[in-house]
Each structure stands twice: as C-alpha cells, then as structure tokens.
C-alpha cells in the first residue's frame, strides 16, 4: 500500500511538472507550425513571465490578479518585440539563420535579466493560500492543483480558439500555406505576429505557474525549454496533441526515475527518453514518418 501511495504521489508531481512542459511545448508547436522554425527562446518566455510577476507582485506590491494580468500584458508586448526583432528580418531565409537568431535572443534575454535582477533566484507566492489537501495518503500541493487545472483550461481554450474562431482559422490557414493564405487576403505577417504573442503569453503563464515551485531564476527557462522540446519530439514533431501528451509523459518519467534511480541525474532522464525515441520511433507518438518533400 505504501508503495502505491508513494508512486501516486510521484505521479501527481510528475503530471504537475509535465503540465508546465506541455504548456511550453504547445508554444513551441504553434510557432513551428506558423514559421517552420523552432524558437530556442521559448523557455525564456517562461523565465520572463516569472520575472514580470516577481516585479509586479513582490516588487511593486500589486494585488495578485492585477500583477498576473500585468505580467501577461507585458508578455504580449514582448511577443510583438520578439517577432519584429528576431524573426521578421529573417523570414525569407532558411531555418538555420532563424534558429541561430532565436538562440542568440535566448542568451541575450538571460544575461540581460541576470544583470538587472541578479543571480539570486526569486521566490514567488502560491496562487492559493493553503498548502494542499491529503487524499488517500497522497498529498496534493495546491500549486500543483492550480497548474493542472490551468493547463487543462488553456489547452481547451487553445483548441476552441484555433478551431472555432475566424482568427483561429486564419492562423491555421497561415501555418498550412502562406502563399495561399496571402492570396486569400489574410495578412500573413500579422498572423505570425499574433502567433508569437500567443506563444509568449502561454510561456509567461507557464513561468508564473511554476515560479512558486522551482523559484524564478535565470536558468529556469532553458531547462524547461529543452524538456518541452524533447516533449514535442516524443509527441510527434509539430503535433499539438503530441506536445501535450509528450510533456505530461516526460514529467512523469522524470519524477519516477528521479525517485527510483538517482536524483543528481534528474535532468538527464528526459534526454535519455528522447534518445530512445529518436532511435526507435523518430516520428514520435502521433507523428507521421519523417520524410522530405520533393
């Protein structure tokens, strides 16, 4: 019995962490679909969101929800800046310059924040004012509950937004065929800008959610991003459903392995899982076989 509760406990923690990977992975996939490029600064969106929250809530003392909305607005503005500063000038080039450019942006952001905010990780309050609840011997931390609920809500919202609204349809059209979308009068550049905004806000929310658990730190983004990217490959490259399943799966694998194998290598398990997938199922769980277009 103790074995079961112990593992249920780990499963719960794993799903919570996995939700964060899933949210960031979702941001990855949206940008991959819109621009064909992996945004290596995706994790830093989470980092920036976390720091914005620290600034508004802890620093300026705004009420939690006002600070939260402020942080999301800041991320939306940042998404616009990122689009025009990092992606837009290179939009006609092959994927490699764009990829390198986003990598440059990631280094720039981390070190700028490091200079401004200092190397000390910042604590962030939980959303709810209680520690959590105990259910059948399993302790459910309130912040993990918040993360799970928020992830489900965001995934659902994203689905509705892309499938049921005109703007969502236009975004989808843009990601499938830019030339055709342009011919139909869809402002492609604007659609891509909106994708970056959406993705930045998603990342920001992930950062605010995970801040109370991992602390808000300079490096939080890159480690989350690497795992989120691993999640997109495991789930199926560029597949929305895959990003979410992959993220959750990775969170669980990681927590279980850390518990049962060894803690110092916690961050390595995700990559190990990734290597195994690349060897035996490179197209991921939901992906179609990888092949090049003629």
């Amino acid at each position: 019995m103790q074995f079961v509760t112990e593992n249920l406990q780990i499963l719960f923690t794993g799903l919570g962490l996995g939700s964060i990977y899933a949210l960031v992975a979702l941001g990855f996939v949206l940008i991959i679909r819109a621009t064909n490029v992996v945004n290596f600064a995706q994790g830093d969106f989470a980092m920036l969101g976390g720091y914005a929250m620290v600034l508004f809530f802890t620093g300026l003392g705004w009420p939690y929800w006002i600070a939260f909305i402020g942080a999301l607005l800041a991320m939306a503005v940042f998404g616009v800046l990122f689009n025009y500063g990092v992606y837009y000038p290179l939009r006609h080039r092959s994927f490699l310059p764009v990829l390198i450019s986003t990598l440059g942006a990631s280094i720039f952001l981390q070190n700028t924040v490091l200079y401004v905010a200092g190397p000390q990780p910042k604590p962030l309050d939980k959303l709810l004012n209680f520690d959590g609840i105990t259910l059948g011997g399993v302790f459910l931390d309130s912040q993990y509950i918040v993360i799970l609920v928020a992830t489900v809500a965001l995934v659902f919202f994203t689905f509705l937004f892309f499938e049921k609204t005109l703007l969502g349809k236009k975004l989808q059209a843009t990601s499938q065929d830019k030339d055709m979308a342009r011919l139909l009068g869809i402002p492609v550049a604007l659609m891509i800008a909106i994708t970056f905004i959406y993705s930045a806000v998603l990342g920001g929310i992930a950062g605010v959610l995970v801040g109370p658990i991992l602390f808000v730190s300079i490096g939080m983004g890159s480690i989350i991003a690497l795992k989120a990217f691993a999640a997109t490959i495991i789930g199926g490259f560029g597949d929305v459903k895959g990003a979410i399943v992959g993220g959750l799966l990775l969170g669980v694998i990681e927590s279980l392995a850390a518990q049962h194998i060894s803690v110092p290598y916690k961050d390595a398990y995700a990559f190990l899982a990734l290597f195994l997938f690349l060897l035996f199922r490179p197209q991921g769980i939901f992906g179609e076989k990888v092949s090049e277009k003629a």
Partner: peptide
C-alpha cells in the same frame, strides 16, 4: 554574454 547574444542576432 548578453552582448554575444545580441551579436548573434
């Protein structure tokens, strides 16, 4: 390092 990052872009 931030300068490197900006430089890369």
């Amino acid at each position: 390092l931030a300068v490197y990052g900006l430089g890369v872009i």
